[in-house]
Amino acid sequence: MSHHIVEVKDLKFHYPDQTPALRGVSFQIRHGESVAIVGANGAGKSTLLLHLNGYLTPTDGQVRIGDYQLTPETVREVRRTVGMVFQDPDDQLFMSTVFDDVAFGPLNLGFTPEDVTARVEKALATVGVSHLKNRPPHRLSTGQKRRVAIASVLSMSPDILVMDEPSAGLDPRARTQLIELLKSFEHTKIIATHDLDMVVDLCERTIVMHDGLVSADGPTMEIFSDDKLLAASCLEKPLRMQGCPICRCKG
């Protein structure tokens, strides 16, 4: 066993119509790392994430999660290790109450009803929404939905949290609170996002994707200081690293 928890080697993927989405992606992630995946729309971020829990099968190349090489046989174990939080919480929360939704994963993993209840309560408490337990998801605010969506994977006690645009659609306060919450987690985190300011807060490392390839991989601050790289990848500096718009001095 290596000390890397995620290892992606020369991953290639074509959609059925032969459009290449990933053209040879490689990277490794260590235990406890918090890594951002950034890139323009269509750069291949979401496609990459869908390989990390085995929803898509690589056309070529390998994905290893923990001790498991991702194959049809190991996909169940891999999905247990990787907690995937999707972009639209309405897709993620499909059951009729918050409790049932957070219980969905643990029940599928075969825990006893008592264990399931304990796990659900713990997960809800962790994200601070215990009081919403019996609410139907359609009567939650977007911020609350996002928290419940995170709880719905925490209840399976994954080692790795993979998140697609966790801050999208949140109001500024809810966004700040979510960042604080995510900071408190000790899981390995992989976050695909356009919110580069959040990346500065949460991730020490950033992988830049462009056109189905990794165009840069390194410490977040280094990457965001490289104007040429950002421009080539259709990105812009996080707001806080741009000059102050009033006094025009460099931040």
């Binding site: 929803y55 999905r79 995937m84 897709d91 059951m95 969905f104 994963g105 009803p113 994977v153």
Partner: peptide, 24 residues
Amino acid sequence: DRAQRIHMAMLSRAFTGEIRIVRQ
């Protein structure tokens, strides 16, 4: 498309074709 994304979300939480609910 949404049904497909929901299915994805179900699969990533160990869905095996049966939806289970605890309710006493």
